[in-house]
């Protein structure tokens, strides 16, 4: 019979207990709550009724698909703009002859540590058609007529907010890729140079394949972050995610349903059903990546 190694239990306990209390228990409780409904002030088990309402009742399902569609658009903008720019910035920063690299690196990373509320409020002011500096700056370069009240138009509000979010978080892919680029051994690059691969070709043919795993991780982080997003939309547009729900994503939809808004009373059970939906979407997305892409990705021993 083995002796129980108490020191292992003792050392693991704090992390396991805290993680269980603040993550695992709430997660499963939310999944459980989604199976209940409140009928005449009594909580009763209703099975999948909340999900039938969510996907079957056009009033709910339209709001859900709208939020999901917006969420995908939010994610696509991040994948198409944030991550390529992050990689580009990292490539420039890792150039050995760039001066003040540390300064640029910090400056680009700083917005990441700002509060969403500050970012949302500051950009709302910058883009304000009344007091904002954006109209004047465009005027100064003769493009005054290009200015639109972007945050107030259904067609442009979500894209604008996605770009604000890109501005805030572009530092994260930049830092991760930068670290990956620095870890590429000099010998490989030198060997490439001897074979005549220099400059841009060295980036495309040598560095990029070597940092692909990092790019994969960043994509997953972006996916999870975007589908859990809430703060920026709430700070900039409020819980109704205006105009006309054009910026409504799953997070704001869930918040509005769970906690209620203005005269709309909160419904924790429907809210939990939406949260469960979000969890499922993120889980499927991450699994697709882990089993579909990551296992097939070629890794190079450095």
């Amino acid at each position: 019979m083995h002796r129980i190694r108490w020191h292992i239990v003792v050392f693991l306990a704090p992390a396991v207990l805290v993680y269980t209390a603040v993550m695992i228990f709430p997660l499963f409780n939310t999944l459980r709550l989604a199976l209940y409904s409140e009928i005449e002030n009594v909580r009763v088990f209703t099975g999948l009724a909340n999900f039938r309402t969510l996907f079957g009742d056009p009033l709910w399902s339209e709001a859900f698909w709208n939020a999901l569609g917006n969420n995908f658009w939010f994610f696509i903008i991040h994948m198409l703009v944030q991550n390529p720019i992050g990689i580009l910035l990292a490539a420039i920063l890792s150039h050995p002859r760039l001066r003040f690299a540390a300064l640029y690196r910090s400056a680009i990373f700083v917005p990441t540590i700002l509060s969403f509320v500050i970012v949302g409020f500051a950009w709302k002011l910058i883009l304000s058609p009344i007091w904002g500096i954006a109209p004047n700056m465009l005027d100064a370069v003769g493009l005054g007529s290009w200015f639109q009240p972007w945050l107030g138009r259904e067609g442009s509000a979500l894209t604008t907010l996605a770009l604000v979010s890109v501005w805030q978080f572009v530092g994260i892919p930049m830092m991760l890729i930068y670290a990956a680029l620095l870890s590429i051994p000099e010998e490989i690059l030198e060997a490439g140079e001897i074979d005549g691969i220099t400059g841009a070709a060295a980036f495309w043919k040598l560095k990029l394949p070597l940092i692909l795993p990092s790019i994969g991780i960043i994509s997953v982080l972006t996916f999870v972050g975007n589908f859990n997003a809430f703060d920026l939309i709430y700070a900039a547009q409020g819980a109704l995610a205006g105009p006309d729900f054009a910026t409504d994503i799953l997070g704001t939809f869930m918040y509005r349903t769970f906690f209620g808004f203005q005269l709309q009373l909160g419904d924790p059970h429907m809210g939990s059903a939406i949260a469960t939906g979000m969890f499922a979407i993120i889980l499927i997305g991450v699994c697709l990546y882990l089993f579909g892409i990551q296992t097939r990705m070629r890794r190079y021993e450095l």
Partner: peptide, 16 residues
């Protein structure tokens, strides 16, 4: 309502 009213907030209107 003046230009850009689509993005004009409640406090904006009060201040204007």
């Amino acid at each position: 309502l003046g230009s850009g009213f689509e993005a004009q907030t409640y406090p904006d209107s009060q201040n204007i």
